[in-house]
């Protein structure tokens, strides 16, 4: 094993052990994510039955239900507030020094810690939802579709990590960013297609939103998986996602180079 992968896997191991110290919290949070997805679906069932239609803007109720199940599976993974949390806590409480004395990059450590917190949700929420839904709906799952979906999850994960890092860097200026992070998070859910599919937006706006990085956290992967957008469109969006990943990565890097120097570990 290379020394870098040895270091980061050690961090992942202790991160998981630490999560397990809070096993009840973890279970409850998984349950909340499930509940969250069920509520989203029930709202749409109500909308459809009140409006007495089978299809809104070309989407049938079953398609929409599948769409929101996928969103329900994605949100616990593509959620950035924990990176912001870890950063803000570290800067306020000084625990950032524990990370900076390690022979690993700060960003790398944040991603691993965040990931060790997501693993249980992925195993207990995302995987069961995706697999269960594929079986129940008798979905025609092709290798291309699955690999495209997984690629989008990776892209989404990178985008969400960089965005979290950028917002978290604001903690150097504003010591309490959690409130901001939470409201931005909600806004991003909306313009990323996490609350209503982007196809519901007026055409011009919808097309614009699909090209923004936020769409890769919800709409693009979910629409790809459910076939709301054609496979050709889905493949065509890959370079857009990669471009955003690169841009956000560069912004995060520059920000860190500048902000990092302002860290003054408080206390001791």
């Amino acid at each position: 094993m290379s020394s870098a992968s040895r270091k980061y896997s050690s961090l992942l191991v202790i991160g998981l052990k630490n999560e397990m110290a809070y096993r009840w919290d973890v279970l409850i949070s998984s349950f909340m994510w499930l509940l969250y997805s069920v509520i989203g679906i029930l709202v749409w069932v109500a909308v459809y039955s009140f409006s007495h239609t089978n299809s809104i803007m070309g989407l049938s109720l079953p398609t929409l239900i599948i769409y929101f199940i996928v969103i329900g599976a994605l949100t616990p993974m593509l959620n950035w507030s924990s990176i912001v949390d870890i950063m803000a806590d570290g800067i306020k409480g000084g625990s950032i020094s524990r990370m900076l004395i390690r022979p690993m990059s700060y960003f790398g450590q944040l991603v691993i810690i965040d990931f060790s917190g997501s693993i249980t949700n992925i195993l207990m929420v995302s995987v069961p939802l995706l697999v269960g839904m594929a079986i129940l709906t008798n979905m025609h799952v092709t290798l291309l579709l699955v690999s495209l979906f997984l690629l989008y999850i990776v892209i989404g994960y990178m985008i969400v990590s960089f965005m979290g890092f950028i917002v978290g860097s604001m903690a150097f200026y504003l010591t309490d960013v959690y409130g901001i992070a939470f409201s931005i998070n909600y806004g991003i859910m909306i313009i990323g297609g996490g609350i209503v599919p982007l196809t519901f937006f007026p055409n011009g706006i919808g097309h614009l939103l699909v090209m923004l990085p936020f769409a890769f956290l919800a709409f693009v992967p979910a629409a790809t998986y459910t076939g709301t957008i054609s496979l050709a469109t889905a493949v065509g969006l890959v370079p857009v996602g990669l471009a955003w990943t690169a841009i956000l990565g560069i912004v995060a890097y520059i920000l860190w180079k500048r902000m990092g120097k302002m860290i003054n570990v408080v206390g001791v």
Partner: peptide, 30 residues
């Protein structure tokens, strides 16, 4: 380098026994 930062910035994981942190250190420093 090895560091101890007083009582305020502990390296030990608060919710885990010290042995887990020691194992972690074994891993990072090979």
């Amino acid at each position: 380098i090895g560091v101890v930062f007083g009582n305020t910035h502990p390296q030990l994981y608060w919710d885990l026994p010290p042995i887990d942190t020691f194992d972690y250190i074994k891993g990072i420093y090979g």
